[in-house]
Nucleic acid binder design. Structure first.
Length: 852
RNA sequence: GCCGGAGUGGCGGAAUUGGUAGACGCAAGGGACUUAAAAUCCCUCGGAGCCUGCUCUGUACGAGUUCGAGUCUCGUCUCCGGCACCA
């Protein structure tokens, strides 16, 4: 072996070795226990970034570790290849989205391979390939058959800059999630997936997501937003029209002093005379913090009290939730309270808190539960009881019914964009909406379109695509020109990976022994927290739909989820030149202007903040193993990672140290024996020397295995390996026993290092005579008796404070420990003859002497 | 406002069911090797005191439970993330 650690040569050699061996290929085999390890696939934006590196390094450690544990491991990778950036690149640079995308895929794939990731590339999929998106279309047709895909006109979130519709989830604080432009409302015909049909199941399924981070499950529950309440009809004073409201607080219904309609409510136009005032309210709808409203001039009747109640239109009432109308109880709802104060409306208290009294002039609404007053026959009821009783009463009076409401809406999937899956629908003047026959799939995305960026669907311009014969009547018809939301693509790619060459979902229906049913669910899914709601919820929905189609036998796709933290780095800012690259800062000054720079916060790596590290450069300087090792060592996976150039050097030093030990061991050990100048006397001394290293090795195997198994805490596992290596580096073997102990330590260190620094471990494995691949070795096992310490440090406390430490044989009895502590000269001195009240002994660890 | 999560050295981070606070790494200081530097190796490294050994103190803050609290309970403060006029 070479004296120097030449990472570049080794890594390329080992990547070829694994590839030639087909080490990462997976085959479904029901006789083997499987492990499906999956990292969220990337959008092929051009180059991988450190976030990818971390994500994939974590996944690769798990995949390689599980393989060594004897699992049949599936570890695939592919490309989330449809999406806006490709189209934007086409508009900007005139490159066709397909060309742009496939070129990026080619480059990024090389980068991933250079990292030494153990993917089975036979299963690679790009969602933009017809072989993949055909099944998006097939799935769409199946949902359409079941009434789960439907078209409706609705107000949608429209981004004027991206010229497209956005899902509710893609709107953040009224702005586009991608470009930050203000989102406007526009009425369009859209295709929807009926996720609301599965909402109860998706919610209940949350209880079973025990392998998911709690906060992600909480976010999903929160997004679904289930609430139980009552819909109540308030008849209008004039005519037979009724106002239907939704409330979760029927216990406060006697406190209603006015009502509010959403500006978009169907009745507003009829009730409000002053259209300019109405328009003003509409303009302020759903945006502003301040509450504004107008009186309609109409009154409704509270069905329980018969009271006459003024009806308002208010900007803060949402049309999309409940019935778009509310009953207002200012005494017990802060929003209603503020509105009432502003417009001088009465406030009627109907709930008093436990042990409280009715306040004359409340300063704020009391939103808690309590006891009912001013509520007719329900006076004296507790809120919880009153909710039920009043709901029943309303139902008996046929004034309303108990209902469950959800915040989640159906999933709008239409996008007025080119680079996505064509929706397989044909519009015929005679037959109306006609689905493309299954046999005609895929509907291929045409290439002959131009990218002007002027908006509208580019597909409208492709005559060959647009004009089609109606499958039903044969007459002239037109295709749907919208494409699907790319979240459709990513909602089932993990199922596609299970099928190797041909993603034929249909052929797998009702096949209990299909590869899908062998590999699914994903045992470990790893990705960023940013997908906590969207992607993960849609995938759970899709998998359930697939289950109901018979494609898969169970509906929960991801057993365990690990959300890795962000990769962060410090930032630099110049008062004139904004964010600076680290190399633009010299001695605390900006190299452009010489001004004092400000050390900014530690932020997520981003090009705009100029605090990115380029993985290519890192690999060139230190190699992939060092990069992987550092990103795994610096923090536990779920936490944010602060990038440190010095820390990377530390990881590199560590590998060099191991290399040095193995090199020395391999070549110089045999000679060393005669050159020995040290005086080591007595065989027992030598035995002890070797057995200490042996013990440490067994302890390390236990620690590393536990750390990986428990929570994938690779940072502490690597720390334990470093400890062992430190011990090895100061170990000079003097005899056969020593040499075999060191050999054992080296061999096990390499095996444990293998998932983290695979090329490095594989190279040294071979250099030390290991054969075949280290990844075909079983994970090391420890011997509990050999791992046991012979001596322990017995801690003596007096009144809980550490006073002395002494060596004692392991496994001593509590009584022995007690005697040793009490008879220690120094302890005796400190006790100074004072009365001992009690002695607490913690087995094999500690004695606490409690004085009176 | 509601729901999560977190506050430990100069820094990243360790500490089974409550039982030696600060593993491992980085930075820093000192030393060895070298003509010199790099690399490497050795030592020190929470704070304060007498710098030998030791003593006191210390895990955001304040109480509490306990023989014993970074860990459990209650309260306070700060920071981060998500949701947010959802009736």
């Amino acid at each position: 072996m070479k004296e120097r650690y030449d990472f570049d040569e080794i890594e390329i050699k080992r990547q070829k070795y694994w590839s030639d061996k087909g080490l990462h290929k997976a085959e479904a085999d029901t006789s083997k226990k499987k492990f499906y390890c999956l990292e969220m696939f990337p959008y092929p934006s051009g180059k991988i970034h450190m976030g990818h590196v971390r994500n994939y390094a974590i996944g690769d450690v798990i995949a390689r570790y599980k393989k060594m544990r004897g699992f049949n491991v599936l570890h695939p990778m592919g490309w989330d290849a449809f999406g806006l950036p490709a189209e934007n690149a086409a508009i900007k640079h005139g490159v066709h989205p397909a060309k742009w995308t496939y070129e990026n895929i080619g480059y990024m794939k090389k980068q991933l391979d250079r990292m030494g990731l153990s993917y089975d590339w036979d299963r690679e999929t790009a969602t933009c390939s017809p072989g993949y998106y055909k099944w998006n279309q097939w799935f769409f047709l199946k949902l359409y058959e079941k009434g789960l895909a439907y078209k409706k006109a609705s107000f949608v979130n429209w981004c004027p800059s991206c010229v497209t519709v956005l899902a509710n989830e893609q709107v953040i604080d009224g702005a586009c999630w991608r470009c930050d432009s203000a989102v406007v409302q526009k009425e369009l015909e859209q295709w929807f997936f009926k996720i609301t049909d599965y909402v109860e199941e998706l919610l209940q399924g949350c209880d079973e997501l025990t392998g998911w981070p709690e906060r992600v499950v909480a976010m999903q529950r929160n997004w679904i937003g289930r609430s139980e309440g009552v819909e109540v009809d308030f008849p209008l004073e004039t005519g037979d029209e009724k106002l239907r409201i939704y409330t979760t607080r029927p216990d406060t219904i006697f406190g209603v002093t006015y009502m509010c309609l959403a500006p978009g409510h169907p009745l507003t136009e009829r009730l409000v005379q002053d259209k300019t005032a109405l328009d003003a309210i509409k303009a302020k709808s759903g945006k502003e913090e301040t509450k504004e409203g107008i009186f309609t001039g109409h009154y409704a009747i509270n069905p329980l009290t018969g009271e006459k109640i003024p009806v308002y239109v208010a900007n803060f009432v949402l049309m999309g939730y409940g019935t778009g109308a509310i009953m207002s109880v200012p005494a017990h709802d802060q929003r209603d309270f503020e509105f009432a104060k502003k417009y001088g409306l009465p406030i009627k208290t109907v709930i008093i808190p436990e042990g409280g009294q009715e306040e004359e002039m409340p300063n704020e609404a009391f939103e808690g539960e309590g006891t009912l007053i001013n509520s007719g026959k329900f006076n004296g009821f507790k809120s919880a009881d009153a909710k039920g009783a009043i709901a029943v009463f309303i139902e008996e009076k046929e004034s309303g019914k108990r209902t469950v409401n959800y915040k989640i809406r159906d999933w709008g999937i239409s996008r007025q964009r080119y680079w996505g899956t064509p929706i397989p629908i044909i519009y015929c003047d005679k037959c109306g909406i006609v689905p493309v026959p299954e046999n005609d799939l895929p509907v291929i995305l045409p290439e002959d379109v131009s990218f002007t960026g002027k908006g509208g669907s580019p597909l409208l311009e492709s005559e060959r695509f647009l004009n089609v014969k109606c499958p039903a009547c044969g007459g002239n018809a037109k295709r749907e020109t919208d494409t699907m939301d790319t979240f459709v693509d990513s909602s089932w790619y993990f199922i596609a990976y299970c099928l190797k060459d041909d993603i034929d979902l249909k052929s797998q229906i009702s096949n209990l022994k299909s590869p899908i049913n062998y590999w699914m669910p994903v045992d470990q899914y790893i990705g960023g927290i940013e997908h906590a709601v969207l992607h993960l919820l849609y995938s759970r929905f899709f998998t359930r739909c697939m289950r109901d189609l018979g494609v898969i036998s169970s509906g929960e796709p991801f057993r365990n989820l690990l959300t890795q933290g962000m990769v962060c780095k410090e930032t630099w800012k110049c008062p004139d030149h904004d964010w600076l690259f680290p190399e633009e800062v010299k001695d605390g000054r900006c190299v452009n202007c010489g001004k004092q720079v400000e050390k900014g916060r530690i932020e997520k790596m981003s090009k705009s903040k100029k605090n990115v590290i380029d993985p290519d450069a890192l690999i060139k300087k230190y190699g992939a193993d060092t990069m992987r090792l550092f990103s795994l060592f610096a923090a536990p996976p779920e936490r944010d990672l602060e990038w440190s150039d010095k820390g990377v050097e530390g990881a590199y030093r560590f590998l060099n140290k191991v290399w040095g030990i193995v090199y020395k061991n391999n070549n110089a050990l045999c000679v060393k024996r005669d050159e020995s100048k040290e005086n080591i006397t007595g065989a027992s001394r030598i035995t002890d020397y070797a057995s200490r290293l042996l013990r440490k090795t067994h302890q390390t195997i236990r620690k590393v295995t536990d750390d990986i198994e428990k929570d994938y805490h690779f940072n502490t596992a690597i720390a334990a390996l470093m400890e062992l290596v430190n011990e090895m580096s100061s170990f000079t073997p003097e005899n056969e026993e020593d040499r075999s102990a060191l050999g054992f330590a080296v061999k096990n260190t390499l095996m444990m290092l293998a998932p983290f620094a695979p090329h490095f471990a594989e190279e040294l494995w071979e250099a030390t005579g290991g054969n075949p691949s280290i990844f075909e070795q079983p994970w090391p096992e420890w011997d509990e008796t050999l791992a046991k310490d012979e001596e322990i440090e017995l801690v003596v406390q007096i009144n809980g404070k550490l006073k002395a430490k002494m060596l004692a044989p392991a496994g001593l009895t509590d009584e022995d420990a007690r005697q040793r502590a009490l008879q220690d000269e120094r302890v005796k001195e400190m006790l100074d003859g004072r009365e001992i009240k009690k002695v607490v002994v913690v087995k094999g660890k500690l004695v606490n002497i409690v004085l009176g």
